[in-house]
Amino acid sequence: MTVLISVWGAAPGVGKSTLCRGLARRLADAKLRVDHFREEEVLTRPQFAPVAEAFRTTGAVGPETLIAATGEFVASVLASGDDVVIADALVPFVPTLLAMGHDEETIDAFLTDLTEVLAPVSPVMVFLDGNAGAALSRAAGREGAEWLDQYVGKLARYGVSPPVTDAASAVRYLARERAVTLAAVARHGWHLVVIERADELSPDEVLHAVERGLRPWPADRGAAARKE
């Protein structure tokens, strides 16, 4: 059985990428075949070439394109024989759809289709919750002072709602993004693991909390399958 673990968070800087690296190492150490799908790879993996092309040519991407690309991705995962895919900020694409101006009714319909497409890889979402403002500050400290201005500018250009003009309004928008994402995933029956106050925990503490939430742990499933 292949499992897709999609990692999201309340804001950039909350620790998604660190968790993905830790999960990938932990599962690989358990002798599972792991594909670590990094956040930037959505624009480089061949299955998502139509998505990258849409962004390059129009600056936008439609739900149909995302569904088709995800279907290609699932087929490639199944063909690869990997046990686990760790995806950093990939599915369920809710932030992308919000940025493209889609309402919650459209997003809910999209999740119905997406959940069906992803069924063969048993999707799980891990959501790192926490203080979005603190997470943004941490990201800015790591990436440099210009990063936050660029991030705010990107959200402003998309015309998201509520509108973003500065860091404080970005935090307000991220609260909506969080709410819509969690509600949509919960309505469609995904296994959802929420790590509260993740920004206050060490990377090891976050990883251990995720391991507790992901029961049965994928490594245990893999061991059982190999015995059979």
Rank of each mutant, 00 (worst) to 15 (best):
R26P: 03
L27N: 02
A28G: 15
K31S: 14
L32N: 02
L32E: 06
D35Y: 14
H36A: 07
H36W: 12
F37W: 08
R38Q: 14
E40L: 11
E40Q: 11
L43G: 05
T44H: 15
R45E: 13
R45G: 05
P46S: 12
Q47D: 13
A49N: 06
P50V: 04
E53G: 10
R56G: 10
R56P: 08
T58H: 13
G59M: 12
A60C: 14
A60V: 09
V61Q: 03
E64C: 08
E72K: 13
L78W: 10
A79R: 14
D82K: 11
D83T: 05
D83W: 02
V84L: 08
V84P: 05
V85Q: 03
A87C: 06
A87L: 05
D88L: 04
D88R: 00
V94H: 00
T96F: 10
L98R: 00
T106F: 06
L111R: 02
T112W: 07
L114T: 09
T115Q: 06
E116R: 13
V117H: 04
L118F: 13
A119R: 15
P120K: 02
P120D: 10
V121F: 09
V124E: 00
F127D: 00
L128H: 01
L128P: 02
G130K: 00
G133S: 09
G133C: 09
A134E: 15
A134Y: 08
A139S: 14
A139L: 12
A140Q: 12
A140T: 14
E143S: 11
G144K: 07
A145R: 12
L148G: 01
